[in-house]
Simulated assay, not measured.
Amino acid sequence: MTTPANAPLKSPTGQPTGTAAAEPAAPASGGGAPKVVARQGVLSAVRPDQQPGDGRYPVAWLHISAPGRGAIPTATSRCTCGRDRSAVGHRQVHALIADHTAHRDLCPLRTASQEGRTAA
């Protein structure tokens, strides 16, 4: 199927001759602009938290990634007191887990809150 290079791809439509001005839109029936009615919605208010909590919040995080058999595990231990440690490999991850557990008892942020609880 061969077509000449200058053959039109679509059916030609009639081309207007000369220029014509745009016609104004017909006026809307009813005289004037359409009226917009605002919806009356229900007033919303921020409600108090339904679960107020007991005053506890996270201080230290231990993230362990052990992807599967034959893969090398990694771990990170972070605390809001500024402690940030990481480990790669089985031995180092196990050591970091033990260190993180020991840090929970020695962290100045946790021991300060515990002293207030025992005094009360």
Rank of each mutant, 00 (worst) to 15 (best):
G41H: 07
R47Q: 04
C79H: 02
Y57G: 09
T19M: 06
P34G: 10
A45K: 03
K10H: 12
R83H: 09
P58A: 15
C79L: 03
A95Q: 07
G14Y: 00
G41Q: 06
S29F: 04
S44H: 06
A45W: 00
G14H: 02
A45Y: 00
G41V: 13
A22I: 06
H100E: 06
Q50D: 09
A26S: 15
T74C: 04
Q15W: 00
A75I: 02
I72V: 15
C107D: 07
R56G: 11
Q40Y: 00
A21T: 05
T76E: 09
A7Q: 14
V59N: 03
V93W: 00
P8E: 09
I97C: 04
L9P: 00
P73W: 01
G89C: 07
R78F: 07
R47A: 08
C107Y: 01
A22G: 08
G32L: 06
K10P: 01
S65G: 08
R83W: 02
P24S: 11
T2L: 06
A119Y: 02
A60T: 12
G116M: 05
A22K: 05
T19G: 04
A102C: 05
L43G: 14
G14T: 12
P16I: 03
C107A: 10
T74L: 03
A120P: 01
T19E: 13
R83G: 01
G68I: 10
V36R: 11
M1R: 07
T17C: 08
Q40E: 09
P4A: 15
R47E: 04
P108D: 15
E23Q: 14
Y57M: 06
P48E: 15
A71G: 03
R39I: 06
V37L: 11
D54G: 13
R104S: 10
G32K: 07
A102H: 07
S86G: 14
A112Q: 10
E23G: 07
P58D: 15
C79V: 05
L62H: 04
G30P: 00
T13C: 01
Q92K: 09
A7D: 08
Q50T: 14
T19A: 14
Q15F: 01
D99P: 00
T118G: 02
Q92R: 08
K10G: 10
A71D: 10
